[in-house]
Amino acid sequence: MFQSDQHKPHISGQFNNELGTLKNDILAMGGLVESQLSLALNALLEKNTEKALQVIKRDNEVNALELKIDQECARILARRQPAASDLRLVLAVIKINMDLERVGDEAAKIARQAKVIVENSLLDSQFVNLRLMGKQIIDTLRLALDALARSDAQLALEIVAGDSSIDAVYAQAMEVVVKTMRADESIIPVMLNELWALKALERIGDHASNIGEHVIYMVSGHDVRHRSSAEISNQLESP
């Protein structure tokens, strides 16, 4: 449940329940996608086909939950005409839901790559960069979901601000990959796989940052998209 639930209840208990279900479902979606991502990364790093297949199979669950949440949002908008923080909650959930579904897609892509790597018994690689960046991305996604669960705009802001450091890590990793490929052409096929997986992680980082922006909007009412983090900070401080 969201921290903001310590707030007063609605006079309509039914509406309260609907919003409660929506919050539970978007957090469940977050949990599901987060576990998809860790499993996919493990599949790749451990070259474990079993885990890769599991991720691919569970992508259906992600899609089904996405649809369910979408329908709940549409129903609440049509029947309750929510206002103020209720409206911002529904709007934020609609967008967060989309970002999470995309994270699920990227996780499934990583899993498919893991499968290809194992099946073709491509050259062994330690995926050093991937390991590093993977951990950072999972942490960021987890923090974004924490910010959502706790309605914590400050934490969300830190995630948005941290996105540029993820981009820097990505650029650095790319450089290393290119250098490695130059040095040894025989390693190119496996390095291409690492490269694709890195790209997927970078996109997931962007989605986590989007989720941070949606949480800030949900909590404060400020639309902080397309703003620098310094500007956002100022906006959050002003009433």
């Binding site: 007063k8 609605h10 309509s12 509406f15 103020a84 923080s85 409206l87 911002r88 404060s220 009412g221």
Partner: peptide, 15 residues
């Protein structure tokens, strides 16, 4: 969408 006062928020969200 973003009332400044808690009393407004409570009234328009039906709390």
């Amino acid at each position: 969408t973003n009332p400044r006062e808690v009393r407004t928020e409570d009234y328009i969200t039906g709390k």
